[in-house]
Design a protein around this nucleic acid. Structure first.
Lengths: 215, 215
DNA sequence: TCCCAAGATAACCAACTAGTCAACTATCAG
DNA sequence: CTGATAGTTGACTAGTTGGTTATCTTGGGA
């Protein structure tokens, strides 16, 4: 019953893009509406504020993009190291895709928004924290499996995951600030070094993929 | 000759505080003026825009706070590992001081502003990049000396400094997002682990200080 | 078919924003 | 003391911002 619409979807997509490229604070509701081809009256029909829209956009980013992607990459059917390598590869590729799409390095929208508004917009902060804590579990689980398997040095998986995430986010942030993909070019080597992956030479993704494939 | 003033100093201090606590985009010129007890006319007497004020504030942060501090911490008269430990300790302490002053974890103003506005305010981006590249040299030099001395495993100092900075900034960012100093509590252990510091047990700052003191 | 709920829209407002300016005032050099 | 210089002030404008509302339109179900 009643008229149908995908204006709310367009608003979420527009908001995420604009915030990703610039920043939360630099983006106005008017801009979001213009990009989404939606009049402001309709904006306020679906959302009560920029922060509410942002929370909705982040939730959708998680359920429709990140979670499916992570469920695939971190599938327990794959070797622990292949999961980690897959994720590092994903981070690298996602950043390069972002550069193609926006014409510059844009980093990670979740971390950027989180760091920017966690002190001002509590609901956005909650959404970011929830999302990051979910993401952390994938890393932690893969590291725990790797330790159990003996493919990395014994360590506390929670702490190792925290350090790994810091390293990744730090390098992604550097790449955005420098507008240069270079900090990400040795991502896997740095991450595997941090985790003390046991292997001579640098593990290759394709080799690990082969390992992950049932023989 | 003529009237004297420290209004520009007050403006720089106010801007840095407000931006540090909230974010660049969330702070208005009116707010900065109010905090600095300066009328807007005077603001435009000294600066032409928020970005110009921000650049001036960042430059002053470097010359009056960071550079003297780093020159002391990274004094080549100290043991390389003591320099690194001193810096990690400084990062930790600065974050805790920030929490005392602002009532919450505020992270690093340079990294936060850099990540936020590097795509929009080229001059602020330039200032941040310059400042971060200067900071990097301290780390790189200390790591190089540590390698030469044999106190950490051989590595490329530039890459190790890049990774170390990413780890530190990532953890600082996590602490801000979580509003919790916990991610910084094992900072030295994580950093020394990343650098593969050669020593049984965890190096203590006081022990390293003793090493740094001429016998 | 036609009703009515869901959604779209333009026009509107009040508050805030950056930025300007002419008049005013303090200070230092001579 | 005095005048030129450096800095201050409040009042002003014009454009933008978030947010509201009454009215119009669409489409699915009875």
């Amino acid at each position: 019953m009643g008229r149908t619409s995908d204006a709310d979807e367009r608003l979420k997509a527009a908001a995420l893009d604009l915030i990703w490229e610039d920043s939360y604070g630099a983006v106005t509701i008017d801009q979001i509406c213009q990009r989404a081809q939606v009049k402001k009256g309709s904006f306020y029909y679906f959302f009560t504020s920029k922060s509410e829209l942002t929370v909705a956009a982040l939730e959708q980013l998680w359920t429709e993009k990140w979670k499916p992607r992570f469920d695939s990459i971190f599938s327990p059917s794959a070797e622990p190291l292949a999961r980690l390598a897959g994720h590092l590869d994903f981070v690298q590729k996602a950043n390069l895709e972002g550069r193609t799409r926006f014409g510059k390095m844009v980093g990670c929208p979740v971390c950027s928004v989180g760091s920017e508004v966690c002190t001002q917009e509590p609901e956005v902060g909650d959404a970011v924290r929830w999302l990051l804590s979910r993401k952390r579990r994938y890393l932690e689980s893969a590291i725990r499996d790797a330790v159990a398997q003996g493919s990395i040095e014994p360590c506390d998986p929670a702490q190792a995951a925290q350090a790994l995430e810091a390293l990744i986010d730090g390098l992604v942030s550097q790449a955005r600030i420098m507008n240069d993909p270079e900090p990400l070019s040795r991502l896997q080597a740095m991450a595997f070094d941090l985790l003390r992956v046991k292997s001579a030479g640098m593990p290759r993704l394709d080799r690990l993929d082969r390992l992950a494939t049932p023989a």
